[in-house]
Structure formats: C-alpha cells, structure tokens
Design a protein around this nucleic acid. Structure first.
Length: 509
RNA sequence: GUCCCCUUCGUCUAGUGGUUAGGACUCGGGAUUUUCAUUCCCGCAACAGGGGUUCGACUCCCCUAGGGGACGCCA
C-alpha cells in the first residue's frame, strides 16, 4: 500500500517473563523488518505502575538477546525517536492528549469510579453495551474549572466518533466494527499515565511505525487506535493480526504450559536457532515447504501474507502428565520429564545441533558436561572428551541430554538388565576373559585394531554375530545400545575397558 | 450478555470451485547398521456438523456446535 520504509516494533509490557506467545510476536516483527530491509524497534510498555518491574524487563531483554532478535532501535540501545520506555515519555502523552482536548476531540472527565460502576451495572441489566454514557462530554469551561478547583480526580477521555470502522488487516482481511459499542474511552488515567490504547498510537506515530504485527487479541483494540490516528490526522500503519498460540489443552498459553518462559528452553539446551525455527512455523509456513531452516533462510522467505488466522498449538509438553503442576516453576531438570520426546521441536533441534560447527557445538555443550559432574576434571580439556562429545552429537535433541550419555564414558559403570542377560549366556565368561587378555597385551589402541581383537576373540571362542558383539558390548559398556562398538571402546580407553571387563567377569561367575 | 475471530490427518501446515486433498513431526512396517541412534523406502491417518449457491464445493453463503479473543483508570 505504502512505500514508506518498513519499521516494525515489539512492545512488551514488563510484567512477567517473555513466553512463547510474546516471543513469536517479536519474531514475526523481527523477521518482517529483516525481510524488507527495514528497522526493528523495541519499546517497553511500562505504564502499569503496579505490575511492571525491572526484573521482568531484564529477563525479556535477556530472552530476546538469546533468541538473536536484535533490535535496531529501542530500549538499552537508543535511537532518534527515544526514549523507548513509555514511563519516560509521560510528558509526550500528556501534551498529545492536550492537543486533542484543544481540538475538541477529547475531554476531561470527573466521574467517580463508583458512579461509573453503578452505571455499568445498570446498562448491563438493561442489556445495553457497557460503554461510558458521555456525561462529562459537554461540560462547560466553567464547570470544568470548578471541578478542577475541587481537586476532583480526573481523566481524559477520547470522543469516539459514531461511525463504522473498518480495520484493513493483512492477515484478517477487512473487519468491521460498530464504534457505538465502544464509547468514549480513557486516554489519560487519573495518575496522569496514558492508557494503553493511547500510548501505543502516540508512540507508533512518533516512532514512524509502518507495520503493526501483533496477536489477534489486539484486533478489537484496533478501532480505538484507528480513531486516534484519525484525530491526529495521521495515516494508519498497516495492520497484521496474527493468530494466537495455545497450549496443548487448546487454552491460551499460561503458566501452566509453563516453560513458555523462553529462558527455560535455553536452560534445557535448545539452541536459539532451533527454537526460532520452531516458533516461525507456528502460524506461518515457508513457500517451499521445507521446515528445517537457518535464520537467514527464514528471513528470506518470510512474509506476513503467508500467516494464517487459526490458532496454533504449542505442543511440546505432555500436560496430561503434569496435572496440577505449574511448569513455569520447574527448573530444566524437572521440566524435561514433561517434554514430549518426539516433538517437532526436538526433531528440528536435533537437526540444528548436527548442522552446527564443531566449535560452536563443543562450546555450547560444555556447560552441560560440567554440570553433569560425571567427567573427571583432569579430562575436561582432553581430546578424548572432545571426540566423545562429537560422537554423541547425533543422539542429542537438546544439549542437556548429554548428561544422560556422558557418564557412560567415564567412571560410571552400571550393567543394565538387558546387558545382564548377555552376560548370563554360557559362553560369556570365556569370551570376556579372552577379549580382556587380548586387550591387555594390545599396544596399538585404535578402532581398527580393536575391531580385529573382537573378531579374534570370536575366532578363539568360536562365536560371531550378535553373540560375539553383544556380549562384548554388554561386558564393556554395560548397555546393549550405543555407538559403534570399536569406536565406543576406543573412546573409553584401554584402562577403563579392562577395568569394566574384569568387573563383568565377576558378575558372570 | 454483546461484538469479533477461528475450525484440513494426533500435531504444525499446503490448499483460494474441478487435486488420487500435498508435505513435515509422531506412529506402524521394511532395508541398511553386530546393538541403539542415524539414513533410505513403504504405509496408517484429516476437510467439525447441517443446510444452501453451483454442472461441480475443503474452497462461496447461512445456521449449529466447539474453541479463542474483546468489551478496564491491564497491556
């Protein structure tokens, strides 16, 4: 419609952690700005003095940074249209409200809360929409002055014109609203703070926002906002109300689906790219249908026109297992239990982990290795650990899973029930001893050589196939699954293999 | 209560009047792998229901049901 430079914004209110819903909105704004070579701005909407807090703000920023949603302008970064915190823009809103009052498009209202409440109930009883009746709309200047003298609480209300308002929305199409159902709403509260609908519009005008991309929840606010644009004689931005995200129970995302706190996913060891990839697929799909994408590819294919209207489910937690549990209160360890093991998120994440550079992977996985406390400190920097981690890479859906594999390569040695079955076989003891002997004498510790030794043990004991391999596997790893055996043993190291074999021999007798 | 929006395999979705309704994840089967994972192949599985409009409807209209959202001195 317009060829103005694209400027999008994400405008969270710092009243809690950033969750999937918010992050997805931020993502779409980011993606669109990048796709159109525009600007992405971050504005903090902290006009709710009671609920806003600094900690939330910081956690949101932390989440944004982690996801790689870099903003070009905004909080903590500055820019030519600052400040970017609404609490620091109070004067601007008041001036603008004053302009509206002077143009007779807004007015002072002195009605008390009790009065309003009573009227609302009355109207509801009569089956009328609960809108303000406009009592103070036509107060004379004298009356206004008099009430001001009395130091009555006052607010500023916007004169809502009676007309049909059509929201022209990129994803929702044209949506009609009857403004008589809206009424004169408050733009400046009695604490002198602007109301949401007013502050957004003033900011979006001043910050030259070209596209407002947000959840459908805001669609019904849009007529109010359009009316304000008109009152200021400014062009509306392009609207795009994307579908909301729901939890596995089809209900709006809440603390119950928890972990919707972005930082929880970071803590579980999802890579930001993977999580971003997953979120981009909620309500949008790439034209070529290929879902595993790096950020650059998402950007190059993104368009809001391909966003759909129907709500998408954030389906990574098994809520049926989490009855009465508030997932948002759990740490990554506890949270893991409620994850669907085979979610698309995990699949994508596994793919991203495999595609990472080795350096990046090693660097990212290390904290989880350390956290597991299963690797002796002396070996933390060794080449062996590096090789182990690299071999384990294909097994990981998210990095914290390394904690369940890594111990098997060091001092931990437990024989699983299925492994015991192999060790109980009649030939197990002899085979294990034979193999141990061969290993003890071996000086060339290399996977090909180990492979030879396994075969040789087989020849000596007249065994091959599963009997041979599974028994040796069970005796040396305690498990019946895992890496290719010669590789596994190479990584384990001669000493540990011997120790384990001896241990297993005792169990077989 | 009033207004607005939504409803395609279990999930994410493609699809804009004529398709064997496509893909991805999951699931089942098979091949490869000494095992597990990986990889490859095959398969199961959907247009919420009812009315229209039309030669023809997943696509358009209406109704019903279900879900979501808005109606704040919250954002």
């Amino acid at each position: 419609m317009s060829n103005k430079p694209v400027r999008t914004r994400f405008a969270p209110s710092p009243t809690g952690y950033l969750h999937v819903g918010g992050a997805r909105t931020a993502l779409f704004n980011y993606l669109y700005a990048r796709a159109k070579k525009g600007t992405f701005v971050l504005r903090i909407e902290d006009t709710d003095q009671v609920r806003s807090d600094e900690k939330s703000r910081q956690q949101m920023i932390e989440s944004m940074v982690w996801l790689g949603l870099e903003w070009d302008e905004g909080d903590e970064k500055g820019g030519e249209f600052g400040p970017y915190k609404q609490s620091e823009r109070l004067e601007i809103y008041q001036n603008h409200a004053q302009m509206l009052v002077e143009k007779n498009k807004a007015y002072l209202c002195f009605c008390s809360n009790e009065e309003l409440e009573a009227k609302k109930k009355q109207r509801e009883a009569m089956g009328l929409p609960p809108v303000y009746d406009g009592k103070c709309r036509s107060l004379s200047t004298e009356e206004v002055e008099k009430k001001k003298q009395e130091k009555k609480d006052m607010v500023i209300r916007f004169k809502m014109p009676k007309e049909e308002i059509i929201v022209k929305d990129i994803v929702q199409g044209d949506v009609k609203f009857d403004s008589s159902l809206i009424g004169d709403f408050i733009i400046i509260k009695s604490d002198n703070f602007p109301s949401y609908n007013f502050a957004v519009v003033v900011d979006d005008i001043l910050m030259k926002i070209s596209h407002v991309i947000r959840g459908v929840g805001h669609l019904s606010n849009t007529p109010r906002q359009i009316a304000i644009y008109k009152a200021f004689e400014c062009d509306e931005p392009e609207w795009a109300h994307v579908s909301e995200i729901v939890g596995s129970d089809h209900k709006k995302l809440s603390k119950r689906h928890g972990a919707t706190a972005i930082t929880s996913f970071r803590d579980m060891g999802y890579s930001p790219e993977a999580f971003l990839n997953y979120m981009s697929l909620l309500g949008w799909s790439p034209p070529d249908g290929i879902e595993f994408m790096k950020k650059e590819k998402i950007i190059s294919q993104f368009d809001i026109e391909r966003c759909n209207k129907s709500p998408s489910m954030f389906d990574v937690f098994d809520l049926s297992q989490a009855d009465g549990v508030e997932l948002s209160e759990l740490n990554h360890f506890e949270l893991e239990k409620y994850l669907f093991a085979k979610s698309k998120l995990n699949w994508l994440s596994n793919n991203h982990i495999r595609e990472m550079s080795e350096e990046r992977y090693l660097k990212d996985v290390m904290p989880f290795v350390i956290e597991s406390k299963q690797v002796p400190e002396s070996e933390l920097n060794g080449k062996t650990l590096k090789d182990i981690l690299l071999s384990l890479r294909v097994y990981l859906d998210y990095l914290s899973q390394i904690e369940k594999y890594i111990g098997d390569f060091f001092d931990k040695f437990e024989i699983s029930n299925t492994a015991i079955e192999w060790l109980k076989k009649p030939f197990a003891k002899k085979l294990t001893e034979t193999f141990a002997d061969l290993i003890e004498k071996e000086t060339n510790w290399h996977k090909d050589q180990i492979s030879n030794l396994i075969k040789e043990s087989g020849n000596i004991c007249d065994l091959k196939g599963k009997d041979l391999f599974m028994t040796i596997r069970s005796a040396s790893t305690g498990k019946t699954e895992g890496l290719e055996l010669p590789v596994y043993l190479t990584l384990l190291g001669k000493e540990r293999v011997l120790k384990r074999l001896k241990n297993s021999i005792e169990k077989t007798s």
